[in-house]
Amino acid sequence: MVNSIKDDHWLERPKTVKRLWYGFIILLVLSVVAQLYTGGKGYFGIDGWVGFGAWFGFLACVVLVIIAKILGKVLKREESFYGESDD
């Protein structure tokens, strides 16, 4: 049922990964450019700025990951900490 065969799947080739990145970047740019046409005004002023969702979403994730990283230093323990490793 479970074999250990490494293969060269097309989705994991560097060329495909590069293409996926290009596609993704085009999508990112489009999502910001589209706002010029929809002309959203937002609820509280600031959220109506062009690209607000973009930089707010990005920054929120950066902040969350950094908080998690710092808390991880304090909270992370070995899996056997409670003496019940379920391997």
Binding site: L28, S31, G53, F58
Partner: peptide, 12 residues
């Protein structure tokens, strides 16, 4: 558009 920006840039 707002949600697409929010989510796509989270993906980035």
């Amino acid at each position: 558009i707002y949600y697409l920006q929010l989510l796509l840039f989270s993906g980035l």
